[in-house]
Design a protein around this nucleic acid. Structure first.
Length: 618
RNA sequence: GCACCCGUAGCUCAGUUGGAUAGAGUGUUGGCCUCCGAAGCCAAAGGUCAUAGGUUCGAGUCCUAUCGGGUGCACCA
């Protein structure tokens, strides 16, 4: 028995597929057939090009085969009739039954299994986040929400490079220039100013020994609380963007927990690694990745230098191995709480061992890192193959995105080129507030108004960063990033608010919005077409998971909103509103109210997948 | 030089495992608040899907080459 979790709508397509395959088998050829929505202006609701394949196998004319299929196919419940449209075989659904099914269907995606660890953000703790980081944060956060919705256990990790040069330079600059924090400026911005000043300082080369001393002190952990203060400021920004985390992993802890040496032990047992006694790699530990990464000029990668120190890639490999549960040994403790009061954990030398195996142990690992790190990420992935774990190599995913430029320039933290994430969020809030002054002045200044502004502003930013494929290069421009009309989150939010308003008015009038009293037989094609868009939801989630990209969901949100707006404004031949819900005949009115309620839930659900909330009013 | 990503309307982008007449937004022009809110809707105009071959009944989608843009190719992090 197919599980109840599975959507009845997914079942409809699956049943059509089975029915057509059955009919094809009877006509003499087993096939794998595709079921798709028919284009507008074509007869039917769903259709299949199966007759093309079948005709080829049978040596007949596709149009004739389609006609034979239409005769032969046994229609599943909910399908009114089948017709041959030239070489295509199309199906008409029973409109009333279909809309009713959509309305009562929670549209639960198929339940995935296996824990997914997603690493994102991982911003150097030396300076505030800029717009490029925002893309990373919202990509990773949205991916987490989507996998969770698809039934996976999800753990969001944020890697803190606390022993790196960037962090050291910021700390050094603060001391060197005797900068005093006034307690009011956001701390990461304050530290970033010192960093930029240091890198513009002509005397910097002479300060090298001092910086190296700070790096050393970072490695011993004695400056950890300084870094924690910056990390907390970073989290503030990320929380504003709606991102949430389960665990912070510190580089010093990855090394301190012995992951590096354990990973190297595993790799050294492989025939792909060697310690050459002579040649240019004499004394180093090298890994031959040519079997996993064809086409390289230099197939050997140095993991441990001949002086015994680790290359960065080696630390990354150790961390990745741990994510997959190849070894244990890290200690954890609570770090802070997120806006909902949930604990964000951190690795820590003075933490508790993870006896419950609550962190790591992933079935799949997704690293959200910009495309410039493709090469090192491939090495990390290949190392799992070297370690003899081809399955984990396969499920080691680099979610690669093109870095964001700022008005055509490469963003540079060092040179201070770019815009901070905080500034973008503030500016978006300003813009939304201005618009609200003219459209909704009564809520300005109230706590509800502030929440409305926040949801719209954050929605607009997140959506702008998500709607295109991650591989697209984005040049940040204020007018595009903060647009409130067109292909934007506010457009979708507006549709959702509208749907909500219809429901409120209906309830005030005393009408049922749960489908009771509905006359499903009076449903029109306009209503059916709207319901068909809602019905796509499970496939959208599945597709997003498959391609590892939230843009699929963002595009679907636009489809939902434009379908709803088009339906809302539809006119009949006389130019009068064709779908006015409250003015519809009793029976049809209740059916449409149930449909509007379903749309409202679809908006909340879909936007929720990409971390965008529906405001109470707009 | 080698590898990877991108090339679709003036601009920014979608385009399901290859299927029906390539779709949105934006900008331009023109319409729609006596009708559940106009951050909305409708219409017009705008395309050699970079170019040339190939595979296929069928290619924006797959393969090859070329051109253009981006990125990466350290005993750096």
């Amino acid at each position: 028995m197919p599980p109840a979790l599975k959507s009845p709508l997914m079942n409809l397509k699956a049943q059509l597929k089975a029915a057509v395959e059955n009919a094809a088998f009877q006509l003499g050829a087993p096939l794998d057939v595709a079921i798709q929505e028919t284009p507008p202006n074509k007869p039917g609701d769903y259709g299949t090009p199966a007759a093309f394949q079948l005709a080829k196998l049978l040596g007949q004319n596709p149009a004739q085969v389609a006609a034979q299929l239409a005769q032969t196919v046994v229609l599943p419940a909910g399908i009114a009739r089948a017709v041959a449209a030239g070489p295509f075989l199309n199906f008409f659904v029973d409109a009333g039954a279909f809309v009713r099914a959509v309305v009562s269907d929670p549209a639960t995606p198929e339940q995935g299994s296996g824990k997914v660890v997603i690493e994102h953000t991982s911003v150097n703790p030396n300076k505030e986040l800029h717009v490029g980081h925002v893309r990373n944060v919202v990509l990773g956060d949205s991916m987490g929400r989507i996998f969770r919705a698809a039934g996976h256990e999800v753990e969001i990790q944020n890697y803190i490079d606390d022993t790196g040069r960037q962090a050291a330079e910021s700390l050094y600059a603060q001391a060197h220039y005797r900068r005093k924090w006034d307690g009011k400026q956001k701390y990461d911005h304050f530290m970033g100013e010192g960093y930029v000043r240091l890198n513009a300082d002509p005397d910097k080369p002479e300060l090298e020994s001092g910086i190296r001393a700070v790096i050393h002190r970072l490695e011993t952990g004695e400056l950890r609380s300084e870094i924690e203060q910056i990390v907390k400021a970073h989290l503030e920004t990320c929380f504003r963007l709606g991102a949430r985390y389960d665990l912070l992993n510190w580089e010093s802890d990855v090394v301190g927990s012995g992951f590096l040496s354990q990973a190297m032990n595993i790799l050294e047992n492989s025939s792909y690694t060697a310690r050459p006694l002579e040649g240019k790699f004499a004394g180093a530990l090298v890994m031959d990745v040519s079997a996993f990464m064809p086409g390289l000029e230099e197939s050997k990668v140095v993991l441990m230098r001949s002086d015994g120190t680790a290359m960065y890639a080696a630390k990354d490999i150790g961390y990745q191995f741990w994510k997959f549960g190849l070894f244990e040994g890290m200690k954890f403790k609570p770090f802070t709480t997120d806006p909902e009061g949930r604990t964000v954990w951190t690795s820590a030398p003075d933490g508790q061992p993870d006896t419950e195996r609550r962190f790591g142990h992933a079935a799949e690992v997704i690293n959200v890192i910009d495309s410039r790190q493709e090469h090192p990420q491939k090495i990390v992935k290949a190392s799992l193959g070297v370690a003899g774990s081809p399955g984990q190599e396969e499920r080691s995913i680099h979610l690669s995105y093109a870095f964001v430029t700022f008005e055509g320039q490469t963003i540079s933290g060092r040179k201070g080129i770019g815009v901070s994430a905080d500034a973008v969020i503030d500016e978006a809030g300003q813009l939304v507030t201005e618009l609200m002054h003219s459209l909704k002045p009564e809520v300005i200044g109230t706590s509800e108004g502030a929440e409305i502004v926040r949801r719209i502003a954050v929605g607009a930013i997140r959506f702008a960063m998500l709607k295109a494929e991650p591989t697209r290069q984005i040049d940040f421009r204020w007018d595009q990033a903060l647009a409130l009309q067109g292909d934007t989150a506010p457009y979708v939010q507006y549709a959702a608010v509208r749907a909500g308003n219809i429901l409120k008015r209906a309830q005030a009038e005393g009408y049922a919005v749960d489908g009771s009293g509905a006359d499903w037989g009076s449903i029109t094609d306009l209503d059916l077409n709207l319901a068909k868009v809602v019905a796509r939801f499970p496939e959208v989630v599945a597709n997003s998971v498959r391609v590892h990209s939230p843009h699929v969901v963002a595009q679907y949100a636009l489809d939902l909103a434009s379908a709803f707006n088009g339906w809302y404004n539809a006119k009949n031949k006389e130019g009068r509103p064709a779908t006015n819900v409250l003015a519809s005949e009793p029976g049809l009115r209740e059916a449409r109210l149930a449909l509007v309620g379903r749309l409202q839930r679809a908006f909340v659900q879909t936007l929720g997948l990409i971390g965008i909330e529906v405001p109470s009013a707009m």
